[in-house]
Amino acid sequence: MANPIRIGLVGVGKIARDQHLPVIGASPDYTLAAVASRQGTYDGVPNYRTLPEMLAGRHGLEAVALCQPPQARFEAGLAAIEAGLHVFLEKPPGASLAEIGLLAAAARARGVSLFASWHSRYASGVEPARRWLAGRRIRAVSIAWMEDVRHWHPGQDWIWETGGMGVFDPGINALSIATHILPPFFLTGATLSVPENRQAPIAADLRFTDAAGTPIRAVFDWRQTGPQTWDIRVETEDGVLVLSRGGAVLTIDGRDQPLPPEAEYRGLYDRFAALVRSGASEVDLNPLTHVADAFLRGERRLVEAFTD
């Protein structure tokens, strides 16, 4: 087995504690060398406030995972690339399409790997769904991604700021799955519900189509309490496929399909290790393109103020 990749992590928040740090700690492909975070710490490794401080501390770093809010990703990503490190970007990979394009160009020039990760694509049912849909005629698609922002993002003001994406922070997970399992599609219209005291939407109603004229509708809402909804329903000429629980459950014509255990972030880190060792990059911007199109083409509708 190749030597473990010495990786640093930037941003010790909820997603880092829940997913990144446990997976890195359990993987034979990595050694956690250091972390950097303005608000959190992690026991057992050197801790720094900023990425530049962590880079100055050396530690033989070979790669870095960036888990801070997307508004801060470009500066950190560029600094890591210029230091010769391979870069893993938590989703969404950045606050704009153009900045990620610049990071990809910098990574190519420096000869390091850049990975724009989409964890929902590694949900257990996604790849089987993609294989089943391949070559089948799709008649209609409906996506419902509804959850309680107070539960999943308590006190996180950055998600409501410009570049924070609001309800598209979870909604982009649905788009990452849809762009992986469906033929290419494009936005035809959107309504974005924006709280009067915030910059980013709390809900979105999106209409898409593809080259064959297939109707595709996606509804994202952060105001749902009780059971949470993460479903994609695809009607085809051969039956109805449903991905539910964010891709963890797959049914075809109402029958549950056998799936492997959940391992989204393990799949991401396995893929990143393979990219690093092969000298390749993977930067798919299709999910973020659809979000950008929604902001470009969507109608803004003011709704009641949101308070956490």
Rank of each mutant, 00 (worst) to 15 (best):
A129T: 00
W160P: 03
A123T: 07
E161M: 10
R108Q: 12
G163Q: 00
W145I: 06
R137Q: 13
S117Q: 11
A144L: 14
G155P: 06
A144V: 12
H153T: 09
L133V: 00
R136M: 04
R110L: 12
A129Q: 00
H119N: 06
R121I: 10
G164C: 00
D148Y: 06
I159Q: 02
A109P: 09
E127S: 13
T162M: 10
A140Y: 04
G111R: 12
R150Y: 09
V126D: 09
A107D: 09
V141Y: 01
W118T: 08
G135T: 00
A144D: 11
A144S: 14
H153L: 14
R137T: 08
E147F: 15
H119I: 10
V126R: 05
G164V: 02
W152G: 04
A140M: 04
F115E: 08
W152H: 08
E127W: 02
D157T: 09
E161C: 04
W118H: 14
R108P: 06
A123Q: 07
W158D: 11
I159G: 07
S117N: 15
G164R: 07
V149L: 09
G155I: 07
F115A: 05
L133M: 05
T162N: 08
G164P: 10
G125H: 05
A109E: 15
W132R: 15
T162V: 15
R150A: 14
H119V: 11
E127G: 08
A116M: 10
G111V: 07
W160T: 00
Y122I: 07
I159N: 02
A140P: 05
A144R: 15
A140T: 06
S124G: 10
R108K: 13
S142K: 15
G164S: 02
Q156F: 13
Q156D: 13
E147K: 13
E161S: 12
R108L: 13
W145G: 01
W152C: 06
I138C: 02
A123F: 02
W152P: 08
A123N: 04
A140V: 05
R136Y: 04
F115V: 04
W152F: 08
A107V: 11
A116D: 07
R139F: 01
L133S: 06
S124I: 03
R130Q: 03
R139M: 05
Q156C: 09
D148V: 04
A123M: 06
P128G: 03
A123H: 06
D157N: 07
W118V: 01
E147A: 15
H119F: 13
S142L: 10
W118Y: 12
P154A: 04
R137L: 01
A107T: 12
E161W: 03
E127D: 14
L114I: 14
E161G: 05
M146F: 12
W145L: 03
S124P: 09
S142G: 15
R110M: 14
G163K: 01
I159F: 13
R121P: 02
W145P: 05
H119G: 10
I143A: 02
W160N: 01
G163P: 06
D157I: 10
W160V: 00
A144F: 10
A129Y: 01
W152S: 00
P154D: 11
S120K: 14
A144K: 14
V149M: 08
V141G: 01
E147Q: 15
E127L: 08
H151E: 11
S120C: 05
L133Q: 06
W152M: 02
V112F: 10
